[in-house]
Design a protein around this nucleic acid. Structure first.
Lengths: 108, 108
DNA sequence: TACATTTGCAACCAATTGGTTTCTTATTTT
DNA sequence: AAAATAAGAAACCAATTGGTTGCAAATGTA
């Protein structure tokens, strides 16, 4: 079931879970209370997040705290790099254009 | 069919299409030739990409060139921001720790 | 005008997805 | 020891997905 991080963040509930546990680890029940989702639904999402190593379980007695592996998020950032390079180039081109226009205005 | 950019980039073929047309617009046939995907499959992916405004068609005679709306990619970057803030904080904390350790070493 | 090319669209299909219900196991609490 | 709580696992279901095949429309070429 070849699971990757891009599939993991495709679901809005999963993105909400990620944002929720980014700051502090939480149990499935605690997470479920924050949305109108059942504990089981949250559990299934967590399973997917664990599969692609975006989330790590931490058992504490009978409770399991799930915490975000923030470093894994850098993979998205890394993929974005190629596009960031493009939009920054375009921006500097626009910047050049504006500079040229400004110059012309002063010259007239 | 509430489509968003995160769903759009979830599919690996779609990510490949995005990367391919990022630099130069292409026709569906040209795109299809780059993968082992049929023209129709590519067309369906393009339809999804258009729906979430990540790609724009540009008709030129009987050919249609599809080009990436690079600005739309910034939405992902914007979403990542909250996590970037966290991993940068953690990094500077680690940095502080290393500085402290180094200091101790020099002091002994 | 007839033919070829490029493309979109609709119908269909198998696989996957997100969710539910039910059940079992493990750990607390009373 | 008995009851309550936390959570994973399995079976099931409707909706969506990625893909296919076949067809029609539009544009270009002989």
């Amino acid at each position: 079931m070849r699971r990757d991080i891009f599939q993991a963040i495709a679901d809005p509930t999963r993105r909400a879970i990620i944002a929720l546990i980014a700051l502090q680890p939480m149990t499935p029940n605690a997470i479920a209370e924050h949305f109108d989702a059942t504990r089981q639904a949250v559990s299934k999402h967590l399973k997917i997040l664990i599969e692609c190593e975006l989330v790590k379980p931490d058992q504490q007695g009978r409770e399991i705290y799930y915490q975000l592996e923030i470093d894994k998020m850098k993979e998205i950032d890394k993929w974005l790099e190629q596009f960031r390079r493009i939009w920054e180039t375009r921006f500097s081109q626009l910047d050049d254009l504006l500079t040229t226009l400004k110059k012309g205005k002063h010259d007239k």
